[in-house]
């Protein structure tokens, strides 16, 4: 086993990725990052022997070329990035060019002899698979799961500049901001979740009121943020959204389709409020109330208020 190459377009993910490979037993860790030298100071503390800097604008295709070039000179056992949309594409392209395996969106990684053993979710988040690939291998790891840990007396890494390969075929036009509220549901202790059982956007106020009373955040199913755009995308929970693990998850007017449930398996306690006794969410819950949310919520919120003022 030799070293690990971390690649990330966004510098913020570097500390947790470096920490993850160090924990897996790698000492020689190098970083390829799409950033300039000024912001590198912050990641040095996590223990790096070399930093490859790629400045300016570049496509994922040319970032993948840079990953390949760094790998050919450094010959790492593991090439790892955060599981973001960009980095998964970069991982796949780099792996194809290096003629090696690619394991995207891993939940855990560990070294096992001459190979890397990982766990990943498969079948729409309903199963977990243990998979293995011989070194060298390209991996992306889910973000927000590894607490970054600085190393004591980290030495200054060597800095190498990499020129991005120009790719005329894909031209960047612009990045448009999208509605975001900067909530981090993955850290919330209590989540009140809104599903299609809510008939109008204004009715979400009921869920917001409950969230305020219990000290929680509002989350939602995919149709609420995706199709209806009643709430912002960063509140969407499930397979294609956030994977959450609160103490208490209150699903209101949520049917409990497998893609939604995939994202709430980490919840300690699940409460469902749904007027259909056959809704699958009841099978995934600790407490089920089979009632119309419009009738139940006002009564419940009122009781909670009364109990608090007593």
């Amino acid at each position: 086993m030799s070293g690990a190459l971390i690649f990330t377009k966004v510098r913020e993910y570097a500390p947790e990725m470096i920490t993850a490979v160090r924990r897996a037993g790698f000492d020689d860790v190098r970083l390829l990052v799409g950033s300039d030298a000024t912001s590198i100071g912050e990641v040095e503390a996590y223990g790096l022997s070399e930093v490859y800097l790629m400045e300016g604008a570049f496509s994922n295709n040319s970032f993948a070329s840079a990953v390949v070039r760094c790998s050919e000179s450094f010959k790492p056992s593991v090439i790892l990035g955060p599981s973001t949309k960009d980095c998964r594409e970069i991982a796949a392209r780099a792996a194809q060019r290096l003629r090696v395996g690619c394991l995207n969106d891993c939940v855990t990684i560990e070294v096992d002899g001459p190979s890397l053993k990982v766990s990943r979710t498969v079948y729409g988040g309903t199963y977990v698979a243990e998979q293995r690939a011989e070194f060298p291998v390209v991996v992306t790891l889910r973000v927000g799961r590894t607490k970054p840990e600085a190393v004591t007396a980290a030495s200054k890494p060597k800095i190498t500049r990499i020129d991005p390969e120009v790719d005329e075929r894909v031209r960047f036009v612009e990045m448009r901001a999208v509605m975001k509220e900067a909530v981090d549901l993955t850290k919330a202790e209590i989540i009140v979740s809104v599903g299609r059982g809510f008939k109008k956007k204004e009715d979400i106020a009921l869920a917001e009121e409950l969230a305020r009373e219990v000290g929680g955040e509002v989350g939602c199913t995919r149709p609420i943020s995706g199709d209806l755009k009643w709430l912002s995308e960063d509140r969407h929970i499930g397979l294609s959204g956030k994977w959450v693990g609160p103490k208490l998850y209150i699903a209101i007017g949520v049917s409990g389709q497998m893609q939604h449930v995939a994202g709430i398996r980490g919840a300690k306690t699940i409460v469902a409020i749904n007027n259909d006794s056959n809704a699958p969410i009841h099978r995934e819950s600790d407490y089920s109330v089979i009632a119309d949310l419009y009738q139940f919520l006002p009564v419940f919120i009122e009781k909670l208020r009364k109990a608090k003022t007593k």
Partner: peptide
Amino acid sequence: RVVCASVRALKVERKRVV
């Protein structure tokens, strides 16, 4: 390049109190 060693259902037992 990738070998699948095992596949297991991600089941969480819930109390299921109605």
